[in-house]
Design a protein around this nucleic acid. Structure first.
Lengths: 206, 206
DNA sequence: ACAGCTAATGCCACTGAGTGGCATTGTCGC
DNA sequence: GCGACAATGCCACTCAGTGGCATTAGCTGT
């Protein structure tokens, strides 16, 4: 039994197991059979829960497919909220991303890679993933602009955060494009390289 | 009769009218009643076509809602393909965007503003709109990297295009946030200002 | 160990987006 | 006017998503 569940009451443990089983089985079936070729009934049958229970755990079919994306952004926003950001904003956001990536559970990058590969193949999942980034962008702007001493132009702040997401998307695409080899260490290295390339990308000739 | 349709055969004219009527009525009903509160049956009844015909014209309910987004990106990609890009890539892409925005039909920004406002209220539409940007990003990368003499690092190219989209999204959000006042002239001015702010956004403190 | 309370589950019937086959209708070219 | 072709609409369907409520399971107090 994983550490997070050990001290929970049985009911909570059972709920958490159901939630994980849905996410794990969903990823497996979506990868093996294809996202569109797998119905929610297929998934629920495989996990032996009802569709009603599925929708108690996930808001949509896309949500269960992209649980790894959601886990990342959730944890990231918690980490940003818990830390003071210093120096250039984009650099500070990237530093916290490093922390969050490092702290994701040991199995996270396998699930994330699978989710990314599904997204590359299914437009609805790609759009949903972008929706998570959009929600994260809005939340980041809220967190940063709500801080004492925050005096930056709100639209410059928004632009900075959008650039942060642009760099992250590019880095994760690089990582996926080479098959996720090297796991999260390589992902983190590519994130670093991509962010370091921002100034050059701004002035790069056509 | 608008200029584009005058010289077309009757069948083509009728198809184009149906397509426009669907988009126009969709925008009106989605704005008046709410996106989720309006069914495809409601829309088809109002335009007096079948759902089958709806799906001959649009791929999804989201597609008809965001027809103005789609129109923009379609025209933009055509304009990029038709022109030589010189100078820094982001600046060249922005210059073509200026051209495309200027050339959109007179009614475009009204439809675009309505689409943006719906997107801000409906997550599925926001995600769909982001999906269009993603598709445009991929297409731009194809166009630019496929050119003779194109020698830039493909990931730097990708990053540049993602930054371009980030700036556009920020500029259009600025425009929407002030209610679209000043029409496309203001939108274009905000695009210019936002792109000019990129270097500062890169180094802006937290 | 049991009873009462609360929360979760699953059944069921439903809505609405999306789909495809095919008969009917309308347009086009001669 | 006619034949060919394209578009339309009907119809029956699938599947994602939803909500009410009876049943089941877990928790707590005695």
């Amino acid at each position: 039994m994983s550490d997070e569940l050990r001290d929970l009451p049985l009911r909570e443990r059972k709920k958490a197991r159901t939630r994980r089983a849905l996410a794990e089985t969903a990823l497996r079936l979506f990868t093996e059979r294809g996202y569109d070729a797998t119905t929610l009934d297929d998934l629920c049958d495989a996990v032996e829960v009802s569709r009603r229970t599925f929708f108690r755990n996930y808001r949509s079919k896309e949500d269960v497919a992209l649980a790894a994306d959601s886990d990342l952004w959730s944890a990231y926003l918690d980490d940003v909220a818990a830390r003071e950001l210093t120096g250039p904003l984009i650099e500070a956001l990237r530093a916290v991303l490093d922390i969050t990536l490092g702290a994701m559970d040991p199995d996270w990058e396998r699930r994330f890679l699978a989710a990314r590969e599904l997204s590359d193949a299914v437009p609805a999942l790609q759009a949903h993933s972008l929706g998570y980034c959009h929600d994260t962008t809005r939340a980041l702007v809220e967190v940063v602009s709500g801080r004492p001493g925050a005096d930056v132009d709100p639209w410059r702040l928004r632009l900075s955060v959008e650039i942060f997401v642009a760099a992250w998307r590019t880095a994760s695409l690089r990582w996926t494009a080479q098959g996720g080899h090297g796991g999260r260490d390589t992902l983190m290295k590519l994130v670093e390289e991509t962010f370091a390339d921002l100034p050059a990308a701004l002035t790069s000739p056509a």
